[in-house]
Every structure is written in structure tokens, then in C-alpha cells.
Amino acid sequence: MKKLVLVIALAIAVVSCDKKQAEVKEVKTAYVDTSVLMKEYTATKDLDAKYKAKGAEKGRQLEAEINRFKQEAQNFQAQAQANGQEWAQKKGAELQKREQMLAQAQQALSQQLQQEGGAEMDSIVSNVKKTIKAYGKEKGYSYIYGTGDSNASVLYAEDKFDITKDILKILNDKYKAPAAKEEVKK
């Protein structure tokens, strides 16, 4: 009798384990090479070009002022001997003050461009994450990992699991669509 109860209990345990295994869903995973994605995404290319142009434009204005300062500094060297030590000290202090102001202006310009560009880049990254999440849900992925940068969570994966090109196409198509609509409005 004890053996019969033990056999029945064992049979029930085996059957319940089989049911649990049958209920376990297949885990579908993939990865995205985030460094390639961000380098090839049209929105990031446009953002980079925008801030290079903005930096060059504002930099030209500052560069013109720096060149005037350099010219004035060279003239100072020649005039210092002719105008005496008192004039040279006074003018030297003025030039030093202007040099500091120009250095501060360069630093402020750099910080301003970084802050503005950083805010826009955060928006792009947020959009990329939303797109990957929507893609994962639509395609039935349990996990989509990121690789390719310092925050990589995949150390190795077979190339067949790389969905970077798929995500990149979706992102670039979505990015082009609003731009095309804006051109039609103009």
C-alpha cells in the first residue's frame, strides 16, 4: 500500500512537472549594437551637423575677436618701449583682462553647445528606447540587449540575433516621415 501511494505521488509529480514545462514560453532574445545604431541614425547625424554648424558660426565671431586681441598684443610689444613702463603696465593689465574674458567666452560657448546638444540627444535616446521597446513587443521578444558601448550588457551573441539594422530602418523611416511632411507644408 505504501508503495502504491508512493508510485501515485511520483506519477502526479512527473505529470505536474511536464505541465509546467509545457507552460513555459520560449524566451526570444536579440541584441542591438547601440554604437552602430547611434552612429548611423539620421537624427543623430543631423544633430551632430547642426551643432557643428552652430559651433562654427558662433566660433567665427569669437575667433574674429581673438584675432583682434592677438593683433593688439603684437602692437603692444612694439609700443611698450616707445610709450614707457607705466603705459606698458596699464595696457598689459588691460590685455590680460581681455585675454581672460575671451577664454571665459570660449568656455561658456562650449558649455552652452554641450548643454543644448545634450538635451536634444537625450530626446533622441528616449525615442530610440521607445522604438526598441515597441519593436520587441510587436515581434514577441522577451529580451533585447544592448551592446557596442561602455554600458554593453552583451559580451557575445551570434550575429543572427543582431536586430540593429531592423531598428535603424524603423528609426530612420520614422525620422524621415515628419521631415517629409514639413517640406510638403512649405
Rank of each mutant, 00 (worst) to 15 (best):
Q77S: 01
R68A: 14
A49L: 09
K130A: 13
K50Q: 09
S110M: 08
A88L: 00
I163D: 00
K169E: 15
V125L: 15
Q81T: 15
S110L: 07
G59N: 00
T42C: 05
A88R: 04
T164N: 11
Q89I: 04
G118I: 01
K137A: 13
D46N: 10
E57N: 13
K129M: 07
G55Q: 04
E138L: 10
A93N: 07
G118K: 06
A53Q: 10
K169C: 06
Q77R: 06
Q81G: 11
A56L: 07
A103T: 08
K91V: 02
K54A: 11
I132K: 01
T44W: 05
T42Q: 12
Q104A: 08
Y156R: 02
N151P: 15
Q79H: 01
Y145S: 05
D122Y: 00
G84E: 00
Q107A: 14
Q61R: 13
N127S: 10
S110C: 04
T164Y: 11
F161D: 11
K97N: 08
A93S: 09
T131Q: 08
A119S: 12
N151T: 15
Q85W: 04
D166P: 06
V128D: 06
I144N: 05
A49H: 10
D159R: 10
W87L: 04
K90R: 13
F76Q: 09
E116D: 08
Q85V: 03
Q114V: 03
K97Y: 07
N151M: 15
A103I: 05
E120I: 02
A64V: 01
K50W: 03
G118T: 03
E158L: 12
E72T: 12
K129R: 13
R60A: 12
G140E: 10
Q61A: 14
E99L: 02
A43R: 04
A134H: 04
K133S: 08
K54M: 11
S150P: 10
G146R: 01
K133G: 00
G136A: 04
F69K: 08
N83K: 12
S123H: 13
